[in-house]
């Protein structure tokens, strides 16, 4: 695994304007995460965890500073360029799965592939491969409402990895699940990191969930206050 950083934040500041006052979330934040890492980000509510995830996913823009991911500066990209960049670089895993309820599991997983030039046959093969990785190849034709929360989250993971992005951004991926199911999901993330080399950044409130990561970053009032290595 190369030791070059996949994620580089340099002097990143982020502030929101509310009425006449400005609320600063980050001020001169720096962060470097190397490719193949699995990092949990913890911190109290309002510490800026989700904002950080949004910045790294190209969903939000910094007020100042540079964000470089996989060698590309994303802080100055246009909206359409960011869309294309997200499509091939990042896979998102949400707390509430965010599956399209009217589509089958396979159709949900196929969504990112619709942004590629793959043929229908190739798309179907890739979808089945992704579902197999998360152990749900037999539920391809089921709709989300026919699945448990854990199964839905595994479909969401399959959707996040189907286009083979380097980076997975997880927002409280086990926040809506019971302890046992949460363990299964976290083990799946570990497996993706270990066996497929995915770089994973996971925001979580749960210290037990954070232990599945290789390292834990504590964020408080817009600053990293502590880094723990778990393994």
């Amino acid at each position: 695994m190369p030791d070059t950083p996949l994620i580089m934040l340099e002097n990143v500041s982020k502030a929101y304007r509310k009425a006449k006052s400005e609320i600063s979330i980050f001020d001169q934040l720096n962060l470097s995460i190397k490719e193949g890492d699995f990092v949990a980000i913890m911190g109290p509510s309002g510490s800026g965890k989700t904002t950080l995830l949004n910045l790294l996913g190209g969903v939000d823009r910094p007020t100042s500073g540079t964000i470089t991911i996989n060698g590309e500066r994303i802080d100055k990209m246009s909206e359409s360029a960011l869309s294309r960049w997200r499509a091939h670089t990042v896979g998102f895993i949400f707390q509430f799965y965010n599956l399209m309820p009217m589509l089958t599991a396979a159709r949900n997983v196929e969504l990112p592939l619709l942004l590629t030039k793959l043929s229908r046959k190739q798309r179907r093969e890739n979808v089945m491969t992704a579902l197999k990785v998360v152990g749900l190849e037999d539920r391809a034709k089921h709709s989300p409402r026919e699945m448990s929360g854990g199964q839905q989250q595994r479909v969401a993971i399959a959707r996040a990895i189907v286009s083979d992005p380097k980076l997975l951004l997880c927002d409280e991926p086990t926040g809506d699940l019971d302890r046992e199911t949460a363990g299964e999901i976290l083990s799946t993330l570990q497996m993706l990191n270990r066996d497929f080399g995915k770089t994973i950044l996971m925001v979580t409130h749960d210290p037990e969930a954070a232990k599945y990561a290789k390292s834990i970053l504590h964020l408080d009032k817009g600053h990293f206050v502590e880094e723990l290595v778990t393994s």
Binding site: V59, A87, F94, L111, P112
Partner: peptide, 14 residues
């Protein structure tokens, strides 16, 4: 709204 935003996050265009 969340479905649309999710698709946009995945990479679908505006």
């Amino acid at each position: 709204a969340r479905d649309i935003a999710t698709l946009r996050a995945i990479g679908f265009s505006s």
